[in-house]
Structure formats: C-alpha cells, structure tokens
Amino acid sequence: MDLVQHGRPAATVDLPLAGAVTGRASSRAGRKGVAVSGRARDAVRADLAEVFRRDYQRVVGVAARVLGSRDEAEDVAQEVFLAFGRSAVPAGEAPGWLSVAAAHTALNLIRSGRRRASREETVAATAEVVAPDVAETVLTREDRSRVRAALAGLPRKQAVALVLRHSGLSYAEVATALDMSPGSVGTTVRRAEAALRKELIRHASSD
C-alpha cells in the first residue's frame, strides 16, 4: 500500500515504459508521460474510471505473475493507473500500455529490492504446489523466488514478452504492445522460457 501513499506518487512511476514500450505508441506515451507529469496536480483523464473498471484486474494479473503476490500486484496496479490517469495514452492503446507498464513496474520492484514479505507467500510456503511438470518437480518457494529473480535479470523485452504471454495476451497483442513482429514473439518467449527453465533445473540438480 505504501508504494502509493508515501513518497512521490504517480508521475514518478519510473516510466521505463517510455523507453521500453517502443514505437509509435510508446514514444507518444513516453513523451506525454513526461509532459503531463508537470500538470499532474490538476489533470486526470476523463476515461480513467472506465478503463480502470475494464482493465484493473488484467493489470493486477500481469504484475502478480512477476511478483507472485497479489497484494503487491495491487500496489503496482495502483501505481500504473495513477500514471495512466495523468497520461495522454490514446484509449485504443490503453490495454497494451497498461500491461507493459505493469510488467515493467513489477520487474523494477524486484530489482530495486523494495519488496516486502508477502502474506500470501508465507501462506503458500506452507502448502507447496506440485507443478504439473513432467519432471514432477515440486516447486518450492525458493524455486519460485529464484525464477522471479532470474526473470528480473533477463533482457527486459524477453521478460516483458514472457509475462504478457503468460498473462494471456495473444501473440498479436504482445507484438503490438512491444512493437515486435508477431513472428518474433514466439522466439522471444521461447528464449525466456528456456533460460528460466534452465535456472530451475540447475538448482534442482544441485540440491
């Protein structure tokens, strides 16, 4: 919760979006993001409530895949929507922009080490999930945090593409959001998965 309530809100969501969402949409998002932050106190876009209602759960879902915790994901989603409320991202590009923003903000959170111990993770630790995995690996909490750390260490585009795909965006949607060709989405996601899987196996065999 405190992510939003103290410190400098919204406009400081480190618009990595600006850099990472590439192409037309993003250059616009980035430019406006900067321009708009100056008048952040008085302008909130008119369609915020509508977009919020439509996309909030999706944004939480994206962040939750990165963070593993829905509580933290909701904090991230709040941050993202605050930024969005002050942006001039075209309405049609909002879903992609929001998803990319959620992924970046969540990845930044992992890298910054600002994480707090999450209640769900503590609970989850007591009831390990058996992975539907051919190796019949039991994914421990350590495995999961290792994967998340590895995720944050991947090239940004790979990490974001992976998270968006696993959050249910289609290849076309991922391609549009990241300004990639749909054909390269599969390759990018595949590389990311291979790297993370290697991370899992490496530790499984060294345990």
């Binding site: 990165v66 963070l67 995995d133 495995d143 994967v147 696993h166």
Partner: peptide, 8 residues
C-alpha cells in the same frame, strides 16, 4: 514449468 513458477 515456467507457467507454474509464475503462477501467483
């Protein structure tokens, strides 16, 4: 495996 690991 990755999908499972990323499951919140």
């Amino acid at each position: 495996a990755v999908g499972t690991a990323l499951q919140p």
